[in-house]
Amino acid sequence: MSVSLYYTALRTEPLTASEAASVTRIIAAHAASFPYEDEESLYVYEQADGDRGQILAGSTKMPFEPGRLLPVIAHVLDSVTELRRALDGADWRVHMDDLDVPWDESEGYVLPGMRDADLMAELGGL
Rank of each mutant, 00 (worst) to 15 (best):
E39I: 06
L42E: 00
L87I: 15
S18Y: 03
V80R: 04
H75N: 11
Y6L: 06
R52P: 01
T12D: 09
E39V: 08
G67Q: 08
H75M: 10
A21R: 13
D51K: 11
R68A: 09
Y6I: 03
H75P: 01
T81C: 02
L56A: 04
G58A: 11
G50L: 13
D49E: 15
A9C: 04
M62H: 08
P63N: 12
E19C: 09
A86H: 09
Y43G: 04
A21F: 12
S59P: 01
A20W: 02
L83Y: 04
S79D: 00
Y45G: 04
R84W: 04
Q54V: 15
K61L: 14
L87V: 10
I55T: 03
L83R: 03
Y43R: 08
A74Y: 03
H75I: 03
M62N: 09
P14I: 13
V76Y: 02
T16I: 11
A20F: 04
R68K: 15
V80S: 01
T16D: 06
L10E: 05
Q54F: 03
R11H: 08
S41R: 02
T12M: 05
H75R: 07
S22R: 14
A28R: 13
T60E: 00
R11T: 13
A57H: 02
A86K: 10
A57Y: 01
L10N: 06
S41P: 01
E19P: 04
P66H: 12
E65I: 12
V72N: 03
R52H: 14
L56P: 00
A21C: 08
D78R: 07
Y43M: 07
P66F: 14
V80Q: 01
R25Q: 15
G50N: 11
L77H: 02
V44H: 04
L83G: 04
A31K: 09
K61S: 10
D38W: 07
Q47W: 05
A9D: 00
Y36I: 05
S79I: 04
Y6A: 05
Y36F: 15
R11A: 10
I27N: 11
R68V: 06
L15S: 08
P66W: 11
R25L: 15
R11S: 07
Y36G: 02
A9T: 00
P35E: 11
Y45C: 13
S33Q: 05
A28Y: 07
P14C: 12
L5G: 02
Q54L: 15
A31S: 13
V23N: 06
R84T: 09
A48T: 14
L10R: 09
E13C: 00
E46T: 10
F64L: 15
A57E: 06
L77W: 02
D38Y: 06
G58K: 01
T81R: 02
L42M: 11
D51Q: 15
S22L: 15
A28E: 14
L10A: 08
I73K: 00
I55C: 06
I73R: 00
A17L: 14
E40N: 05
E37S: 10
R52G: 07
S18Q: 11
T12C: 00
Q47D: 07
E40Y: 05
I27H: 12
P35M: 11
E65P: 00
Q54G: 07
K61C: 11
L10S: 07
K61G: 07
R85H: 13
A29T: 11
E46N: 08
L15W: 08
E39T: 05
A86W: 08
Y6H: 08
S18P: 00
A21T: 09
V23W: 04
